[in-house]
Nucleic acid binder design. Structure first.
Lengths: 214, 214
DNA sequence: CCCTTGAGGATTGTTGAACAACATCCTAGC
DNA sequence: GCTAGGATGTTGTTCAACAATCCTCAAGGG
């Protein structure tokens, strides 16, 4: 048992949130969850703080913690930061260790395999891994950590997307295109390609959210 | 009382750390600090989590929390991320709201005033505000938050610098130079100038740390 | 002499209960 | 219909206790 109880509780809650079991906006009652998971309120509160740190839940003073609700503004902002981090990764690709460059290729390939299987949740995961790998080209622990937090947040927005397939399928070929440009050393073109890619994806999500909100 | 007790305790500890009262590496004992500040261990632990979130302290399981010790690797990494965020800000400068652009100029001016007064701690603060303003040109809450965390971390490294004056003085004129380039709309030149600026600053800190460690 | 081993002490991790502080809802009164 | 004020439930904080873990240091064997 190398992890604390609070960390294990946080892991359970994280999974429930990511699976959509705890929908955005729902309150996490200290008493109810404590009884459910068999931990004390104090420990549960520590777990809440860990999740709040990942922006998965929101802590309002004297009101409790709630599963985060993302608005269009949040999505726009997330994509802005992603743009900065992933672009920096692409610019650093030339100097990146081979292992990091291979991680990009691997992620693209796995997304294509998952698509062949029709496993769209897996495609979503592999797609995020691809972008994580792009940012990872910077070889920076802090960039990696920031990227992990951003993508975890973004998963919350995915819950509002009706069809994972319609959202992810068009981007598969574009993932591969960027990967090819990187392999050929055409970093400038890869970066512009990535920028329009992110703009399109963002627009798609924002439009969908605005549709839903009616 | 709009802030919780834990937040107030965290603020006190944050100040002690930033003032060098609690030197890097020292342990924050739960019992001793609880007695000192008049709060229970549980509340103190909550404050510790908040500080750990800012990377000011480090939490080791079953061992307690310690004031963060920065190594050369950390400084290098922090400057890498700073480079990405501040560069992105400079690239976004053309589209940034006037208020954000003015914040850049204000920070440079305040740094110069503080230097005239010989108040070098204030110069350090204004210098950080300048770089925060550069990143702020992206107009992104998440970039702002990330930048705040990075600069708070970096303050820890400043404690190992012997003379604030020798470190900050040479960069004052370069701050102004970058600000001028931005004002003239020469964004590309501003970006390359910024990049070499950050490289130099990083090198200075890293060299100093390696000196100290003997 | 060095290394391993184990007991002891100190600190953190976790619990449960209790009370205070706060937000919300409902009702009484105008 | 609206405001004031109490009722109720939740979170915020404290306290005391015990369990789990780590560190130190000394005893013992090689």
């Amino acid at each position: 048992m190398t992890r604390s109880t609070a960390q294990r509780v946080a892991a359970v809650l994280r999974e429930r949130v990511e699976r959509g079991d705890l929908p955005p906006g729902s309150q996490l009652s200290e008493e109810a969850l404590g009884l459910d998971l068999g931990v004390s309120r104090n420990t549960l509160r520590e777990a809440f703080r860990l999740l709040a740190h990942e922006s998965l839940v929101e802590h309002r003073l004297n009101r409790g913690v709630f599963v985060r609700v993302l608005g269009p503004d949040d999505v726009i902002d997330i994509y802005r930061v992603r743009g900065a981090l992933e672009s920096a990764g692409v610019r650093a690709a030339a100097l990146a260790p081979p292992a990091l460059r291979e991680a990009v290729t691997t992620a693209v390939t796995e997304a294509e395999w998952a698509a062949d299987d029709g496993d769209w949740p897996a495609v979503a995961t592999a797609d995020l891994a691809f972008h994580r790998a792009l940012a990872g080209l910077s070889a920076s622990p802090r960039v990696d950590a920031a990227m992990d937090r951003l993508l975890a947040e973004l998963r919350l927005a995915f819950h509002t997307m009706p069809s994972p397939r319609r959202f992810h399928e068009p981007f598969l070929v574009r993932n591969r295109a960027i990967e090819q440009l990187l392999a050929k050393g055409e970093y400038a073109r890869a970066e512009t390609e990535l920028t329009t890619y992110l703009d399109d994806a963002r627009q798609l999500i924002v439009d969908t959210m605005r549709e839903e909100r009616r």
